[in-house]
Amino acid sequence: MAKRAQIIPPRADLKKKAVNLSKGFDMRLTPEVVRKLEEVVHKSRDTFTADIAEKLVTMRRLLTESRPEPERQRDLVAQIYDASLEIKGAGGTIGYDLLSQIGKSLNDFVTGLTALDARQQRAVGLHVDALYAVLANRITGRGGIIENAIVEAFGEARRKLRPEADEDGRAGDDDREA
């Protein structure tokens, strides 16, 4: 017979330790604190862009040196998956929303793959080129009409070259709550 669920009351020790009426930060961020925190994020921008640039160099090298052996292909896809996921997560955090969008598009493209055929490899290469262009031209925010058209074109390429990926319903992710 199924065990009846036991409800354990919220634990108050952390709240007791940190929440008070005199010292610390307001429960809702004040504009002053937001400014200070955003300054921290802004300062990290150079470190992030250098890291992303390094990842793009690595992806470009991996694509150039790619071999048809299954093990090498698996490794290639895994490394592209890792790099694109990090770019997706980092870009928008430091104000490069377009990097995140293209990073997500690349990540969606390789998710579930274990090898890349010639056409898929070209599509990955185009993603890397676009990421380079965004970084080199310091295109912050979501970009303009041309940039959005590029992101849409990548979506179209994914639907053509990876129809099964879109069936998984991987589109759309925002500030989700558990």
Partner: peptide, 10 residues
């Protein structure tokens, strides 16, 4: 008085 969080304790 509104509550505050002292993060230095966490």
């Amino acid at each position: 008085m509104p509550e505050k969080i002292d993060f230095s304790k966490v």
